[in-house]
Design a protein around this nucleic acid. Sequence first.
RNA 1: GCCAGUGUAGCUCAGUGGUAGAGCAACGGUUUUGUAAACCGUCGGUCGUCGGUUCAAUCCCGACCACUGGCUCCA
Length: 672
Amino acid sequence: METQDPIPPAVPPPAPNPERKTLDDRAKMTELERIRHSCAHVLATAILRLWPDAQFAYGPPVENGFYYDLECSHRISPEDFAKLEEEMKKEIKANHVFEKLTVTREQAIADAQTGRLGGLAERPGNASKFKLDLLQNIPEGEPISYFKNGDFIDLCAGPHVMRTGNIGAFKLTTVAAAYYKGDEQGPQLQRIYGTAFKNKTALEEWLKLQEEAKRRDHRKIGAEMNLFAFDAEFTGPGLPLWLPKGGAILEELEKLAKETEFQAGYVRVKTPHLAREKMYKTSGHLPYYAESMFPPMELSGENVRCNEKEAAEEKFQEALRSLQYEQQTPQGVEALVGKLLSVSDEVRLSRTDRYYLKAMNCPHHHRIFAAEPHSYRDLPLRLAEYGTCYRYEQSGELFGLMRVRAMNMNDAHIYCTPEQFAEEFRAVNEMYLKYFSIFGLGKYQMRFSTSSPEGLGKKYVNEPELWKQTEDMVRKVLVESGINFVEVANEAAFYGPKIDVQVWSAIGREFTIATNQVDFAVPAKFGLTYRDRDNTDKTPLCIHRAPLGTHERFIGFLIEHYAGNFPLWLAPDQVRVITLGDDENLIKEGKRLVHELRQNFVRVDGDFTNEPIKAKIANAEHARVHTMLVLGPRDLEAGHVSVRLHTGGPQGAKPTAQVVADILQSIKERRA
RNA sequence: GCCAGUGUAGCUCAGUGGUAGAGCAACGGUUUUGUAAACCGUCGGUCGUCGGUUCAAUCCCGACCACUGGCUCCA
């Protein structure tokens, strides 16, 4: 039977540390990490036996195994894994000692130049270029060491297991491309992923766990339950179609958000899906964000008004007037044609109006704020909207519902005074926690992202004082609320610090499920003000928040969280009334019950066919119908229905009225 | 966008250089049933798209598209 037991979607790993590991960090490596790191060396050894020209970069242990990045004339594919694993087994069987050698920097550079580092022997003319680069990054004074197993010598600080034979069980998993040092502009390397364990049993257990994780993949369950569909051919990649069953979940979430926000003093607004270019020029999102936006729609024509239009037309006329003097020579004509073309292009552009599909709702909300004058007495103003946003994510980044190109955001912008900020920010965090408790969401990480002094004026607006103030405010709220969080420098939004809630998908990918951001910059760009007590105009602070993220990602996450077995209030199929056979009286009572539930807004249907009861139950179970109400002659006689839960099996017969009341109560309370 | 892999009926999957099958689903019957699948029949596919090789391509080759695993990026 399928249950809700949490197959761990991978334990939250510590935030990946882009910085170089210190020797102290390395000394803390667990035994499993040492096994995996050692296995990376064994992999490199095997690769070199097959393709001696390979040059190696990094080969660290990672959450579920290890990888080694390399450059090699041969393109390694999974078809090569069998022979690679053969070579690796030989190296493990040879049981070589991982021998540590400490060398001078000069020696290391010399060895790298001969190609000896990350090699089985010296390779004249094939210097260990990545190792040379790595050597540059080792701070003066830090000892430099090699690790040697058999013929293979690698520049490495360790630590390792004692001998290659200590690697109990391993498996190569996948190949990928990876940029050197993660830099998109840098060289692209081949990355071979593998995993290793102390013994075969542990490896097999892990592989089994991977299989189980795949079974709760939202893409698989979404298809099984008919929640959503992708239709790349007609609708487009990354543009989900919500089927009726998925629509039901979406409606429930939206209802929850609207009720919660209403009670918290939010007001609802509605804004269009697109806006003119000026919107995003003003907000500062263009040109920085243009890459992530769908290309603009260009409208041109006489009725387009634009400031530059007249100026451009003037230039055009001027070019025409010069025609008579310059057309004497061929060069003159050519120059003139070029000039006319460029000017006419200018005129065309000046007559073109550009509309962008919105990638975020904030600018629209800012314009709503600007549509009316505001007094400090109006604040805080909390504008909420399930806004539909469009982002042109790179094709390789699309991932089921978790990463799409059209999304419905549980968005709101809170405009407040600095005095109100802490209270508002705290209230938002409380809303998060309320939601998480409704969904029984325990495995997440709050990540507090701050600026960096170096990024001021570049990545971040240049307001050191405001950065410090808002970061202090946020930190204080977090600490006072007793919320566990990690602080990450240099990850803030350009307009202020933020808190992201990180969760992990069934297959272990990390996602931001919710976000809460401070904005002390953009309202000023739009000239937003409120009249303060002292009769001066001041710029409000803005909090961007999306505790339920987007429907797409949040539902994708919930599908995996519940493994498709939703609580009653969220279940697309809440109740099915199943008659035992198709006796007229049974059907009559069945229909009455369906009608009663439906009039109380329960998503209910009836199965009154003459299929055997076992088949009808099986159908309902496969559809993950939350509650099955079986109606047979005995039940009818007693005024009962027999209750069966998808996640709990048969619950016995109960009076119909009581069952209905329980169902309505469970939905109302949004019971887990 | 980059690297690798995959693409056969609505779903899960077989299969072959001589224009394709199974189970489930759907539909039509028969069956009259107490909690995960009764029986019979019918329908269903230009084998992702376009080109090439070949007497002949779903199969071999190429390009493109989409999806999957990663990289980069992000709600």
